[in-house]
């Protein structure tokens, strides 16, 4: 077991100063007007996410869920080393396209966010923004040890350990990293979950929004974005 200094205490007092460009300020427009600008208020939407109801008719919802499951669009955002395991799935060796799984380059069009391994605090911030930009219903899959309990980076000062405290995770896949086959098997499981109507992570996120935000803000000290980034 690694040696640990029992007397070490992290600095909990120092606040990170707000970034210069985010401070409210006065700006003179080209036509000579002086206007107040408050970047965090003006540049972003401040509306929290809403819980979205299911379709009124069960048969319609079931059909939708079937379509959602069979058309799984993954955000091609490699957050960690596991990103490399998705490449064989995109390419001829495993060809995930035949299962209705496709990669999209923009969060707007993606339904599934793969957290492919360790998340440093810095990447976590991006992952949260990305997740919030995705349109519901949306899903999160955590790959490998790192997302479950820190993995190899268990003693890192800058890597989060439990992913589900920051994003609603639908499925974890064990491995370091899981092989493409394991990923595929995980996708099949996720499909089952979606078809059964159990993949309601987006609504869970909206319901427990305050809890998630508190967790996120506990590790991201320079919170230079609004609470909800759609």
């Amino acid at each position: 077991m690694k040696h640990m200094d029992p007397n070490f205490r992290k600095d909990t007092k120092t606040e990170f100063p707000q970034r210069e460009e985010l401070k409210p300020r006065k700006v003179t427009t080209p036509d000579g007007q002086v206007i107040d600008i408050e970047p965090l208020q003006d540049y972003f939407c401040q509306e929290p996410p809403k819980v979205h109801q299911k379709s009124y008719f069960k048969i319609v919802e079931d059909f939708y869920n079937w379509c959602r499951a069979e058309s799984l669009w993954i955000l091609a955002f490699g957050t960690g080393c596991g990103a490399i395991e998705m490449r064989p799935l995109m390419t001829p060796r495993f060809d995930a396209y035949r299962y209705g799984i496709q990669w999209r380059a923009t969060p707007r069009q993606a339904n599934l966010l793969m957290i492919s391994g360790y998340l440093s605090v810095k990447t976590l911030k991006r992952a949260i923004r990305t997740y919030e930009q995705m349109q519901g219903p949306k899903y999160v899959v955590g790959l490998g040890s790192c997302t479950i309990n820190g993995g190899m980076y268990w003693d890192s000062y800058n890597t989060i350990k439990k992913l589900e405290e920051y994003l609603p995770v639908d499925l974890y896949i064990a491995g370091c990293m899981p092989r493409p086959e394991a990923l595929l098997a995980g996708f099949m499981e996720l499909k089952k979950k979606i078809k059964a109507g159990n993949a309601e992570g987006a609504n869970k996120y909206a319901e427990k929004f305050d809890w998630y935000k508190a967790n996120q803000k506990a590790v991201i000290k320079d919170w230079d974005m609004p609470d909800y980034n759609w």
Binding site: K2, H3, M4, D5, P6, F8, R9, K10, I148, N149, G150, W154, D155, S156, Y157, T159, I160, K161, K162, V219
Partner: peptide
């Protein structure tokens, strides 16, 4: 070296 990364980690990112 007087920054203990393990201690910092445990005080910041709780273990499961």
């Amino acid at each position: 070296r007087d920054f203990d990364t393990l201690a910092y980690s445990q005080q910041t990112h709780a273990d499961r």
